[in-house]
């Protein structure tokens, strides 16, 4: 099997986020492989171990983005493509999908995996838009994957429970981090990753003009960043259980009036 995983490098959102004058402060932030994409890499590796597969990573990003690809290679992916061009900095979902469409043109694969969203934008559109552009069936928010009789068995977290779907090959599947716990690269894996092929791809290589990407970017634009309105800490109530419950009931009925 041939599996592609589309990855993104994102700031570590577990860290304190700093915004100044409407701008996101990237200094001091650690940049990591998007957690949802890491789950895709893990799942692809599990399928590779079970059935045999070639796992290829693709990432759009600047020079630093190579680190996220190295991480995936150190986990066990076979090779990687690094799509990099000055015109491709800070792409939105729709422009990223357009670039990836050009990348996949003429390539053979059984399926594409990508995170259900990027941890920085939390937008959740790129995967589904890419599958539309490639005219592939897709499913989002997968929490389980397997292959049976040349079909991909996908468990997806839906509104009413886990939906089980059989997808043909090729298809595109976006994955949740609830699917697995991505492995930590071993020292051996890290050493091996340095010798694995990582191919540089430019916009020209893709046969795409900066204008075509810009047209997608212009559909919507990010103006500024801010912090969410802070929620203040209220009353901390201490004492024995009787006191706690009596005080709470008093507060909920008389003060907040929600009971």
């Amino acid at each position: 099997m041939k599996i592609y995983v589309c990855c993104k490098q994102v700031p570590d959102v577990a860290m304190t986020i700093q915004i100044k004058d409407g701008k996101f402060i990237s200094e001091g932030m650690n940049y990591v492989l998007n957690a949802y994409d890491a789950s895709c890499v893990e799942e692809a590796l599990v399928l590779k171990e079970k059935y045999g597969a070639e796992v290829t990573l693709v990432l759009i990003g600047d020079e630093a983005g190579k680190e996220a690809l190295r991480k995936g290679l150190a986990m066990g992916a076979d090779n990687a493509f690094h799509i990099s061009d000055p015109a491709l900095n800070n792409l939105g979902s729709q422009a990223a999908a357009k670039v990836l469409q050009a990348f996949f043109k003429g390539r053979d694969f059984d399926f594409i995996l990508t995170g259900k969203q990027a941890q920085d934008s939390d937008m959740g559109l790129a995967g589904g838009i890419l599958s539309g552009l490639l005219n592939l069936p897709y499913v989002t928010n997968a929490v389980g994957l397997d292959v049976q009789d040349k079909m991909i068995v996908v468990k997806r977290q839906g509104d009413e429970g886990v939906e089980v779907l059989h997808m043909p090959m090729p298809s595109l599947i976006t994955c949740s981090n609830d699917m697995n716990d991505p492995r930590i690269p071993s020292l051996k894996g890290i050493m091996a990753s340095k010798k694995k092929p990582m191919e540089q791809v430019s916009l020209t290589d893709l046969g795409l003009s900066a204008d075509e990407v810009l047209k997608e970017s212009q559909k919507s634009s990010l103006k500024s960043f801010g912090l969410p309105p802070a929620r203040k800490a209220g009353a901390k109530i201490e004492g024995d259980a009787q006191t706690l419950v009596a005080t709470l009931m008093e507060k909920l009925t008389k003060e907040a009036k929600v009971l």
Binding site: Q94, D122, L125, T140, Q157
Partner: peptide
């Protein structure tokens, strides 16, 4: 979860601008 699943394809097929959440 259903709307989050189908909106990307809809945005693509209509050549619209999509923003979530």
């Amino acid at each position: 979860e259903g709307i989050k699943d189908y909106i990307p394809a809809l945005v693509q097929k209509l050549d619209g601008a999509g923003i979530t959440d």
